[in-house]
Design a protein around this nucleic acid. Structure first.
Lengths: 186, 186
DNA sequence: ACCTGAACACCGTTCAAGT
DNA sequence: ACCTGAACACCGTTCAAGT
């Protein structure tokens, strides 16, 4: 009784941390909070809306990088975003769905775009940088976390992929592209 | 009776085309094929495996671009991949899950990497280009198709986003980055 | 080789009602 | 404002059995 939205989101994060997205059902979440399943619908319109709020929550911690030169700031913020996702199992999948549904705000993309614009990029190019960085980060994190989940369940063996190396290589390409666009716009 | 794997995948594609991923249930798929739900489990181990086969199917049509200069070939193949995804509603989501599960082969990433390598990139940089292109293309397509699905259901209005422009801008950044990496390696 | 009948253990969500 | 009881209309999957 007397639960708040934040309590529910905290419990949801806990289920991801200790189990998986597959186990994050409304019924289980309700049990964790100590409430009947339908009680959740007083706080959230539906599951999708709850997941969107969780997605906003998960990415709220990505810090600003205003101290760094703009290309370094782009790279650092992408690394921070990835770290925030990897800290909570299956969170990348949650964020992807939330962004796709349009129910979560995408603060992060505009922050990337702002940094790129500060490097002298035209708005469309700055937007392109932001899009490429966001999609790379969530997409690769989804692959990594899904794989980790399957390994955790013992349904499959180690992948042999080095996700960090793959991420860094792709990140470098995008940052190089941003630098090239900056020089072209000058 | 006497259904083949291909018949089932064809029916699955039809459900995506005429309805959505949400309606692509094993029960509905079975009904479409004219069979009891559990009959599908003779052909596929589980739903995930079936979706992985569907994902391979959906991307099998992306043509080669060996005739073009390498940077143009990268861009053209990314555009072709996007076109293949956009041709079937919700297919990007299917491909994303399938790649994440590791049950689908990812031919496309190696083809991108091969083209990049032909431009003189080191293996790690070529892999980075492939990763960035694949994640951009599926990630943005997921957003576009999910949005389209919600509009189709009338649950939400037009987005005002120009996904093609966003895609092109991000694609340009990545290709510029690939070119820069090529010059650096020379 | 390919399918059915029947069942198990779940889902998200709604509605009326309670305090 | 916040929650419960009971129900509805579904899911994916398994098992034994049929032809």
């Amino acid at each position: 009784m007397g639960n708040t939205r934040a309590d529910i989101l905290h419990a949801a994060r806990g289920i991801l941390a200790q189990h998986s997205l597959a186990e994050l059902t409304m019924r289980r979440l309700a049990a964790e909070v100590g409430v009947a399943p339908n009680a959740l619908y007083w706080h959230f319109a539906d599951k999708q809306t709850m997941l969107a709020a969780l997605a906003d929550d998960l990415l709220a911690e990505v810090p600003a990088r205003d101290d760094l030169p703009w290309t370094s700031a782009l790279a650092a913020m992408a690394q921070d975003m990835r770290a925030a996702l990897l800290a909570v199992p299956d969170s990348a999948e949650v964020v992807s769905s939330a962004w796709a549904s349009g129910l979560a705000g995408n603060d992060l993309a505009s922050r990337f775009a702002g940094i790129a614009a500060s490097g002298g990029l035209l708005p469309s190019a700055a937007g392109g940088v932001a899009t490429a960085l966001c999609q790379l980060t969530i997409g690769l994190s989804i692959e990594e976390q899904t794989r980790a989940q399957m390994e955790r369940l013992g349904v499959i063996g180690r992948s042999g992929r080095d996700y960090t190396a793959e991420f860094t290589a792709a990140l470098d390409v995008i940052v190089d592209g941003a630098r090239a666009a900056s020089e072209a716009a000058r």
